[in-house]
Simulated assay, not measured.
Amino acid sequence: MNLDQITEPLNQRLARGLARIAAVARQLNWQAAEVAGLSPTQADILGFIANRPEGVRLTKVAAHAGVSKATASEAVAAMERKGLVRKYADASDGRALALTATAEGRRIIQAWPSGFAPIVAGLSQAEQEALFGLVVKMIRQLQQRQMIAPQRVCATCRYFRENVAPGTTTPHFCAFVGAPMAGRHLRVDCAEHESAA
């Protein structure tokens, strides 16, 4: 018997497996959000804002969360009432508003448990590094296909030099810090990111 003929295609099995893993992580995140008195959308938005101490506009918040500007505005208003975020006039455009997390909002996010942490904890260091490389690749491809909001990933940063030392343990280079990088050093949300485009 040839199992390739009776087994559903690998891409379908992989997609189902990833969906199951994401469902577990989402459930863990929902439980953590409930404990913190937040909706899952509010928790996601708060994390995004807290990781941008320079402030961020509502349009970027909505794009990150994959929700309408109205939904993002409602979530931000609720968190503003809870004292977790604040609005202020954007320095680059006084007519626009920017958002930043309060000290309490940052405290909640710093203590936030990642829903994926217990999932990846069962993998060895080498397996985590291999999976991380694939995650970075998928984020990059999604961004190129405009299926995800722009991310502050190394691969799209003007300081990133990809594969300048092939065949070494640190093939990449970060011109911002002036240091060689291995795949495990790549970041998926770097505060120093500046778009290469």
Rank of each mutant, 00 (worst) to 15 (best):
N2K: 09
L3V: 06
D4H: 08
I6S: 13
E8A: 14
P9G: 11
P9W: 01
R13L: 04
R16S: 04
R16V: 04
A22E: 15
A25F: 03
A25N: 03
R26H: 13
Q27E: 14
L28A: 14
N29W: 07
W30M: 14
Q31E: 13
G37Q: 02
S39Q: 04
Q42Y: 03
I45R: 08
I45H: 02
I45K: 02
L46H: 02
L46C: 06
G47Y: 01
I49D: 04
E54L: 01
G55Q: 05
G55F: 06
R57M: 07
L58G: 00
L58P: 07
T59H: 12
A62K: 05
H64P: 04
S68L: 09
S68R: 08
K69E: 15
K69T: 12
T71R: 01
A72H: 00
A72F: 02
A72G: 11
E74D: 13
E74G: 13
A77Y: 14
M79T: 00
M79W: 00
E80N: 13
E80M: 07
R81Q: 10
K82Q: 12
V85Y: 03
V85G: 00
A89K: 09
A91C: 00
D93N: 14
A96P: 00
A96N: 01
L97E: 05
A98Y: 10
A98E: 14
A98H: 10
A98M: 14
L99T: 01
L99G: 02
T100R: 13
A101I: 05
A101P: 06
A101L: 00
E104R: 13
I109N: 02
I109V: 15
A111R: 08
P113F: 08
I119E: 07
A121R: 01
G122F: 06
Q125A: 09
A126W: 05
E127G: 03
E127H: 05
E127Y: 08
V136C: 15
M138R: 13
M138F: 09
I139T: 04
I139E: 12
I139N: 08
R140E: 15
Q141H: 13
Q141S: 15
Q143H: 08
Q144E: 14
R145S: 12
A149I: 06
R152H: 12
V153W: 00
C154I: 03
C154S: 02
C154W: 00
A155I: 12
A155Y: 09
R161Y: 12
R161V: 15
R161L: 15
E162T: 10
N163L: 04
V164M: 12
G167W: 13
P171D: 11
P171M: 07
C174Q: 09
F176N: 07
F176L: 03
A179D: 14
P180L: 05
P180T: 06
L186N: 07
V188R: 08
D189C: 07
C190D: 09
A191C: 05
E194P: 04
A196I: 10
